[in-house]
Each structure stands twice: as C-alpha cells, then as structure tokens.
C-alpha cells in the first residue's frame, strides 16, 4: 500500500488525512459483529488490509537496543500476543505504537497512514486505546469517573456550559455516564462503581483500566500485561473479558503477556521478541514448536512462570 506522503515524518499534530480521523471515531464504527470463532478472523484477516503495521522499527536508549528492525502486521479482529523474556522490548513496542516513544527508525502505519511518531494527543480519535504495565489509573476518582474519563476525548461542551448545565453539556454527561455504566456491567464492575479506584484490590484495578480503554470502543486495543500479578482464576476471567471485548466491539487486540498458557489459548497469532528482535511470528501451534522460541523464551519460562516481568 503506498504511503500518503503528507503523513510521513509527522512529528507533532499537523496534517492527518481527514477521512482517517472520521473513520477513527468510534461513533463511525460499523455495528459490531459477533465473530464466528477464533480461527475465522485469522483466515479472513489474511486477505484484509492490516489495521496496524510496523515497518522497520528501531529504537535504542543510549547503548541499549530496545527494538531492532521490527516489522509487524496486525489484521482487523485479530488477537495478537507479543511475548518474550524480560527486557525483550515488548513494552517499548507498545509505547512506539501509542506514540509514547518516537522510534529512531521506521514507521507505524495505522489503517494505512504512516507516522514517524504516532500523535499521542490524537490517539483516542484514531481509535486506539491502551493499558499500562504498571497501573495508570486516576487514584482520586471513583471507578465510574475513571471509566468515564475514557470518553473525555469526545467532549465538546466547554467548562462554562458544564458548570451552568446548559447547551450540549447535559446530554453529553448523561451519554458519558450511561456508556461508562454499560462497560462496567460488561466487565462485572458495577458493584464497585462508586468506590475510589485506589481502594480496590489489584486485580480489579487492572480490570478498571481495561474498562477505561474499552469505553471508547477502540478499533485497536493495546494491553501491556493485563494479567500480571493475578491468580490463575483471575487470569482466566480476564482472558474471557479480552475475548468478549473483541467479539462484542470487533476490537483488534495487541496483548503482552508472560503466561504462555493464557497466551496460547487466547491469541490468533503470536509474535516473539528477544533482545529487541522479532524471532517468530506465527500461530500458537507453530510458535510452540519453534526451536528458536523454545531456546529463547519457553526454555526459561518454567522457572519464570509467576510474577515474571511484573
């Protein structure tokens, strides 16, 4: 696919293809289709254009090479896992995709539009949401308000309208809260709706962060170790939520996870990183039998199972 030249080398918010912005808005999403099983989307995806692709991404910090010449394509509706030992560059990759880091080399293409650095401030408008490896919730807000803040990018009323309760602010507020409530229900968080988020147990906080990302109904959801530090049953629950989110909102998911069992069951394809290089990119079964992966990662997984890379 040819790159629109104006979109290359964009650093700050300047020129973005307007039609992409329009498509990026969740309100412009086609009605979510329930997906037909796990194998299907992969088959379909092979023909469809990738939603996300990375081309020759390189990133280093001083002497440390975090990412080296990474190519990656993720197709619509796919759940794509990224695995690799600690320090392999997984979080760096997500930070590049979400514009937190600017790669030294290469481009990120979202829906065919290339960026030298993804504009973080426009990320939500582009239909991309993410969670963080370490919780990044707003401690001083309730669960509901945390989730509602995931819709802040759509707010068009100004503070004066909100204070006086006039103009479009009332409708917006009602709409925001009802959408937040729906997501809370979807993720089984309604019972803790009004709790201060910092008072919740860790596992629930992770789920609130997923809710905050999901409430915008993103087309691309980036999850950095959403199950880290959870018990086996919590992990299973979380995996169920991720799959349900994909099925219900037709969201494409990029997921970092250390627990190989969870990853194998959940993902359509798995990319394996080691020392900043991509050493495999295949289906779970192929990855399971890949000798380089076994050497690099699975070999150490047995004594690294719990709490790895938290």
């Amino acid at each position: 696919m040819p790159l629109p030249s104006y979109a290359l080398g964009v650093m700050e918010a300047s020129v973005y293809a307007p039609e992409v912005l329009a498509r990026g808005l969740p309100s412009a999403l086609p009605p979510a289709q329930p997906s037909e099983g796990r194998a299907e989307p992969t088959g379909l995806a092979a023909q469809a254009a990738p939603l996300l692709s990375l081309q020759g991404i390189g990133l280093s910090f001083g002497g440390v090479v975090a990412l080296a010449d990474i190519d990656l394509s993720v197709h619509p509706g796919e759940i794509r896992a990224i695995i690799g030992p600690n320090g392999a560059g997984k979080s760096s990759l997500i930070n590049v995709i979400s514009g937190v880091y600017r790669p030294d080399r290469g481009h990120v293409l979202l829906d065919g539009v290339g960026y030298a650095q993804v504009p973080t401030q426009r990320l939500a408008h582009l239909g991309v949401a993410r969670t963080f490896q370490n919780l990044a919730l707003f401690k001083g807000l309730s669960v509901l308000d945390n989730v509602a803040s995931g819709l802040a990018y759509k707010v068009r009323s100004n503070f004066a309208g909100q204070v006086l309760g006039i103009g479009r602010s009332r409708g917006e507020q009602r709409d925001t809260l009802s959408r937040a409530d729906q997501i809370l229900q979807f993720l089984d968080l309604s019972p803790v709706r009004d709790r201060l988020v910092g008072t919740l147990p860790y596992g629930l906080q992770k789920r609130v962060e997923l809710a905050r990302a999901l409430v915008a109904q993103p087309r691309l959801l980036l999850l950095d170790e959403p199950m880290a530090g959870m018990t086996a049953s919590e992990k299973g629950e979380m995996a169920g939520f991720v799959r349900a989110a994909r099925d219900r909102f037709a969201t494409t998911v990029v997921l970092i996870e250390h627990d190989v069992g969870v990853v194998m069951g959940l993902s359509d394809r798995i990319a394996v990183l080691d020392y900043g290089r991509k050493i495999a990119d295949a289906t779970p079964d192929e990855v399971r039998n890949d000798q380089r992966v076994i050497d690099a990662y699975l070999g150490v997984a047995s004594d690294n199972e719990d709490g790895a890379g938290i």
């Binding site: 979400s98 973080t120 401030q121 939500a124 990044a136 707003f138 803040s149 990302a213």
Partner: peptide, 14 residues
C-alpha cells in the same frame, strides 16, 4: 484530577 494523578495516561486517553 486525571492530569494531576497521571499525566501520561490523561494524554493517551485524549
């Protein structure tokens, strides 16, 4: 409050 509690996350969610 969002900006006070986590500026990066606030920026990311728009």
């Amino acid at each position: 409050i969002a900006i006070r509690d986590n500026e990066t996350a606030a920026r990311i969610i728009g």
